[in-house]
């Protein structure tokens, strides 16, 4: 139950950050052009969207950190697996576990470094340049995202130990395109 909620939260967070950042930049561009239109100008010129780029960057950095954790769960992170895929299953299993363990180790360390860094920044009055939000809150993406990623690596490792299954991302999968249907449509009518 808890896991389900965590999964959905993770997905909702990164999808909304993606949509949000797109809308922010869209709005900023539209605003810039409206500001050049004589009559509309007087209404929109006083809106200040100078923070749009900064907000977009921070949204995407957060998306990247949490999306990377989601990616562990869905197996999207690519590695050089040509060699281990030729090994006999037992040995390959050991390498897979080693890789997952290394992932957990790295993200765990980075999470802790990030936490220390955030603590250090929270003792200063640093704010972001345009939005003037406290930097330590913005930097929270590093420890939170990394710890979540660490947890995902452990989770995948655990599943692998129990079932021998790894999440696998299929790049060729396209929702909504049915090859058989498509075949009928190929070529001009």
């Amino acid at each position: 139950m808890f896991m389900k909620i965590l999964d959905r939260l993770e997905e909702a967070l990164i999808a909304s950050l993606m949509a949000g950042a797109t809308l922010v930049i869209f709005a900023a561009v539209v605003h810039r052009y409206l500001s050049g239109v004589p009559v509309v100008q007087d209404y929109v010129l006083h809106w200040n969207l100078a923070w749009a780029q900064e907000l977009c960057i921070y949204m995407f950095v957060w998306m990247a950190k949490f999306g990377a954790a989601y990616g562990v769960r869905t197996g999207i992170h690519v590695g050089v697996d040509v060699i281990i895929n030729r090994m006999e299953p037992n040995l390959r299993g050991k390498f897979v576990l080693f890789g997952l363990g290394a992932g957990a180790l790295f993200t765990g360390i980075v999470g802790s470094l990030g936490a220390r860094f955030v603590y250090h920044i929270s003792e200063t009055d640093q704010v972001s340049a345009d939005l003037e939000w406290p930097m330590w809150i913005i930097y929270l993406a590093v420890p939170l995202g990394s710890y979540l990623m660490c947890f995902r690596f452990l989770q995948v490792a655990w599943t692998f130990v129990r079932t021998g299954e790894l999440p696998h991302h299929d790049h060729a999968q396209v929702d909504g395109i049915d090859p058989v249907e498509a075949a009928k449509e190929g070529g001009p009518a």
Binding site: A15, M63, G67, A68, G71, T74, D175
Partner: peptide
């Protein structure tokens, strides 16, 4: 109109996940 609105969240999620993977490599 080849894509219903209901499929937009899935596209957003897939794009976010692919982007995050690339951004993570960049980082």
């Amino acid at each position: 109109k080849d894509m219903p609105l209901s499929r937009v969240p899935k596209v957003l999620l897939d794009s976010a996940s692919m982007s995050a993977m690339l951004l993570y490599i960049i980082t």
